[in-house]
Design a protein around this nucleic acid. Sequence first.
DNA 1: TTATTACGCAACCACACGGTTGCACATCAA
DNA 2: TTGATGTGCAACCGTGTGGTTGCGTAATAA
Lengths: 105, 105
Amino acid sequence: MGSGRVDDVFDALGDPGRRSLVREIAARGDATATELAAELPVTRQAVAKQLAVLAEAGLLRATRSGRETRYAVTPGPLRDAVAWMVEVGAAWDERLARLRDTAAR
Amino acid sequence: MGSGRVDDVFDALGDPGRRSLVREIAARGDATATELAAELPVTRQAVAKQLAVLAEAGLLRATRSGRETRYAVTPGPLRDAVAWMVEVGAAWDERLARLRDTAAR
DNA sequence: TTATTACGCAACCACACGGTTGCACATCAA
DNA sequence: TTGATGTGCAACCGTGTGGTTGCGTAATAA
């Protein structure tokens, strides 16, 4: 169950840098590669690469307007990943199943 | 918040093979490296290495009895990871609500 | 127009890491 | 004891990938 998309999400979230990007974008609402790179010790191209991976995994949505491309968080895949964790956890600990209510919302 | 332990969990779950191991152990209840490797196209040492990573992240608990070491899932860290995802998702939702208010005006 | 800004793409590089082989030690059965 | 089984540790290897530099192009500003 839910292995296809969920796998991509975990792969994408497997990198600390990418997790920071998701966190930052979620906090800002949206952002461009240039904006994000401005406050990081890496180049814009590096950030753009990671944003591409996140977008490929479905975690971000890219919208180009004029000469800039803005990225925003797509909560759907996150919910799938949460479901996976709850599922695995539920097999071992029924207490975790209660989180399903909170997460499913 | 939620950066220390959660980061280890995502790093550990970032590998497809390790996710399979967690899934399998959760289904069995517990298992040893030898048992798991018996049904995989990799060596016991490879499995043992991954189990060590998972245990280091707090996802597994190792219990040695006699000459065998059995691993079982520890649900705590999974809960933290779920919390992180819900948190990020919530931040997005909040932002979205704010945009909705602005647009309605 | 010219200059500037923001992207995207393509090589290239270095290092982390998953996997392997080999070996030594501990435990249980004979 | 001897033999089989289960681990753990160390060294080595190949590759995936995050990061960089460099360049070409589209969109705004002057």
